[in-house]
Design a protein around this nucleic acid. Sequence first.
RNA 1: CUCUCGGUAGCUCAGUUGGCAGAGCAGCUGACUCUUAAUCAGCGGGUCGUGGGUUCGAAUCCCUCCCGGGAGACCA
Length: 572
Amino acid sequence: MAIEFSEQEQIRRNSLQELYKLGIDPYPAETYKINISAKEIKENFKEGCGFYQDISIAGRIMSRRIMGAASFTEIQDSTGRIQLYFKRDEICTGEDKSFYNIVFKRLLDIGDIIGIKGYVFITQMGEITIHVKEYKILAKSLRPLPIVKEKDGKIYDAFIDPEQRYRQRYLDLIVNPQVKDTFVQRSKLVNSMRSFLSGKDYVEVETPVLQPLYGGAAARPFKTYHNTLDMTLYLRIANELYLKRLIVGGYDGVFEFAKDFRNEGMSRFHNPEFTQMELYVAYKDYEWMMALVEEMIEKIAIDIHGTTKVQVGENTIDFKRPWKRFTMYEVIEHYTGLDISKMNEKELIKVAKDHGVEVDESMAKGKLIDEIFGEACEAKLIQPTFITDYPIEMSPLAKKHRTKEGLVERFEAVCNGKEICNAFSELNDPIDQRKRFESQLELGKRGDEESMVLDEDFLKAIEFGMPPTAGLGIGIDRLAMIMTNSHSIQDVLFFPQMRPEKKIAVATDEEFTELGIPSNWIPLIRKKGINTIEEFKQSNPNKLINDLNGLRKKLKLNIAALTPEIIKNWFE
RNA sequence: CUCUCGGUAGCUCAGUUGGCAGAGCAGCUGACUCUUAAUCAGCGGGUCGUGGGUUCGAAUCCCUCCCGGGAGACCA
């Protein structure tokens, strides 16, 4: 009986049954052979060129214009849309016209996937169109698609509700072609980076996502549990410490595109799971790494856009080498006019407060400087810029600066007001590394929830000797946001994290039957919004009898009307 | 977590002072053999996010909760 479907869904399900009755399988198993794409036809077809006279193509019906014995339809394949022309007497060459009149006109809907054979021509209106000689249903669609129309570049009835777009990304991809492009560009970005690194003979590796200790970054982890080992495991927040073990093991260069997980706030720049590319190269330092980053990102921009210039919001960002470089102290002096390099903790607290930083007990010198930078400088750095030489306290895995006391050899690249990568000359002195971990423990005691934990196994590895190494982490999602001009991280993740939709508790048919309710009344009760036994018991029997008999009449159901006696039994 | 805006038909949205829930597209029926936001005629389609309150009467006013967007907080 299926009253739970909307009118349009019900009509489509009826059409499906009709198709079966006509002996048509709406979900055929065999391959449908295709020899062309919509894009190829549109790019190459010219009037009278003689090409594409025997083509086979498949796609989803996106619009229909039926004019009696002839019709126009648009289908969409992975490359785009193309118009089809159907003519009754060519689809049905014999006496029986039902494959056009019934199947095509009545049983097919927008959203159905069909395959067609025919030839390409140009209509009187000048549009490249496929003249269909035969068609075949490949998949019937049972739900109505959002309808987006467009004329002269103006979009009508756009499918824009962000909640639906993210929850039902497939719909977003079907009806909003730019979305598909964004993800194609993201894929190009990753491929470009991968081929760049592979071209230098670095080895792409995989390291554990489930880690007994989380390390390599400052963040709160997701915690999980392994039954057999009877132990707590963490989803990685970074893979740094594992990649360094591989450098100890003797690889010259290793990299990994890693899904990392951080149990922290969400925003347009943060998703609980995100992708980072980390790279470690032996016998190099951070100066060398800066040159590599410039070269790599410049190449990525060119591979995606054909130019080093990328439009992001209102800014045009130029990734052409060389990028600007500032030390941390320089950039703060540049934007605040203050030289903080010689300041003690008290003076730094004052500067921080003056620039709107909320200072608390757990903040040490390094953290304060980072906060001042974040408040006063970061958002103003639009063009790609390297910030170098960070305070030692906030970089426990970076090597001490070769000449500057209290600093480490670290850089970040900032672009469009946000960090896109983080890199250092890696700390390979095991004695120093142990001390740094210990001072992290001190920070932890001071209340810093994200201070790093001491990883004894990692220390053991570098005690065997790790070559001097340059290391890099690039946030792929944030780079993708810039390269695709996306405002939110949700726009570069197919399935951004969402709170689940609330499920309405629904009582089963059996539970209703147990009360003595005949099965043919159950859907009507649900239709009235009564989904649980609880709700049923609390409903007013007199109102219910009216409602149900009303529905019965409205839907012209062939079942006996309810009487007060029958209803009374249900409630006892 | 805070502030703020929003949730009405499959989609996009309107809904006045509290008084019979509306439009366009989509759908259905019919007409139409080169249309393109096709057109023309007719028709159907609603848990107004959820639960409560005020009221003769609530999409509308008040409260609770749910979901989402934006800005912040936290955080790379």
